[in-house]
Each structure stands twice: as structure tokens, then as C-alpha cells.
Amino acid sequence: MDFLRPASWEEALAAKAEHPTAVPIAGGTDVMVEINFDHRRPEYLLDLNRIGDLYEWETGEESVRLGASVPYTRIMENLRAELPGLALASHTVASPQIRNRGGVGGNLGTASPAGDAHPALLAAGAEVEAESVRGTRLIPIDDFYTGVKRNALAPDELIRAVHVQKADGPQQYSKVGTRNAMVIAVCAFGLALHPETRTVRTGIGSAAPTPVRAKVAEDFLNAALDEGGFWDNGKIITPSVAKQFADLCAAACNPIDDVRGTASYRRHAVGVMARRTLTWTWESYRGTTLQKGSVA
């Protein structure tokens, strides 16, 4: 094994181009487990810890450009206002020790269906900034997850940052597990209200081969909210609408039975979380967003 220690982003890209099989290591909270248990013996480890740019974020007009290695702890502490869904999801990851090291770049690199960042990114809207010596591209988050633990990165590409849409309304994240800390999601659900476009977006974790959005459910809800004038009148969402939304979210799942839960339990739980997160965010929209007169 070789340990490559690039001191700059350019050096890292050059190293990845030269050794496309090199395994990047950021927080190491996925990679080191695999090495410790001898599940993986990469020829090259590509250490990203010395690249300071990856630990920084910039808040722009529309989005936050979140460096790939910004640890979850930083997201929770500093980006709660801009990225509430991702901040909530970050707080559910493992333990303080893991959150101090792990970040969204590694979560995307692993692309586990159970990764907690994914539902939040899907619901908020995001693009992955992938770069290689050949150039930079922005991959829409909807196109990023290509299979179980597979993503759209080319062998010579690294994730530089994630551009996450700044929240324009309330967001929520909900996760089912056997306890609060240190738990891989049995399933998870992210929901974001986007009052500016009058849309609702979702993200489902651990209930399909990849993280997915419940697009049919979103379309249904967007139409129902529109028809009923809900965005303007701020009325409580009709229980039948909430129920149908929940059912459609459950239907968007394609889960499996495994040690953490059965497929039917996952489907059920996703429906429950969909209804709850919709209720929570809508209450918050009615209570604060609407009061402030943003919708006149």
C-alpha cells in the first residue's frame, strides 16, 4: 500500500489522475472500518486531510458551497439557518467523535442508501461539484446515486464541494432507529418546503437501493396545495391530503428485509415519517414564514 499525501487540491487531482484506483480518505470513518476489518486493501490511500479548501464553506445568494470534508459537527454548529435539513440529519449521525471527522463528501463517496446526508440533500436540492484534471462538472443530486453504494463519479474525479440550495422555508429530517445515538437508519425521511417555488421536496433513505425522492407524492402534494390555495391561506393541510401524500411516499419505497427491519415495516415507517415531517414543517410555515408576510 502507498499513502499519498497531497498538500493541495491540484496535487490531489493529479494523484487521482495518475492512480485512478487510489481510495480517497477524508474523515476515514468508512474507509478505516473497511481496512481494519480487512474488507479492503487499496493499493493507494489518498489522504485529503491536508487540503484546507475542503474544510471551508461559502454562503452565496442561492446556495451554500459546502467543502467536501466539512465535518458534520461544523454543519450542525454553523449552517443550521441556511441548511436546516442537513444540520438536523448531521446531528443524527453516529456520535460526537464520528461527527468530528466524517462529512458529506465521504457520505457521498460511500453512497450508502442509509447515509443520512442524502435525504436532506435530495429534499433541499443540491449539486455535487466533481473535479478532475479534465475539468469540473456539477452533478445534480438526483443523478448522483446510481446503484447500491455506487455514484456517478468517474475514476479520476474527486468531490470538491456540494452546492446545497439555501432553505427558503422550513425543513425536517426524521430517522427510525433502535436508539438515538450511534445508529444506522432503519429508514429515514427528509422534507423541505420551498415557498418561493411553492413546491415540496422529499428524500427517502434506507428504503430503496439508492436514496430516492418520492416524486409522485411531491407532484400530488404540490397540486393539492396549489388547488386549495394553501400556500396563501396557510390553512392546516386536510388530513386526507396528508394521508394520500404519506401513502404515496410509502409507495415510492423499494425496500428489502434485513437485520435492521423488514420491507413492510420500512414502507409503513416512511409513510408515518412523511406525514409527521409534513405536519411539522407546515406548522412552522403557518406560524413563522406566513406571519412574516413573505406571502402577501
Binding site: 470513518t29 468530528n100 471527522r101
Partner: peptide
């Protein structure tokens, strides 16, 4: 990373030392 019995501070930050590569 599950048990925390290897916790040390790395540049002041608590981490699981079993998940930090020595070269890092």
C-alpha cells in the same frame, strides 16, 4: 468507531483513534 474506548484528541478535537489513519 462504535465504542469510543480509543478516543483521543487530535488537534484538540475528540476522535476515535481507530478510525484515523496513522499517516493522517
Amino acid at each position: 468507531g462504535e465504542c469510543g474506548s480509543c478516543t483521543v484528541r487530535l488537534d484538540g478535537v475528540p476522535v476515535c483513534s481507530c478510525l484515523v489513519a496513522a499517516g493522517q
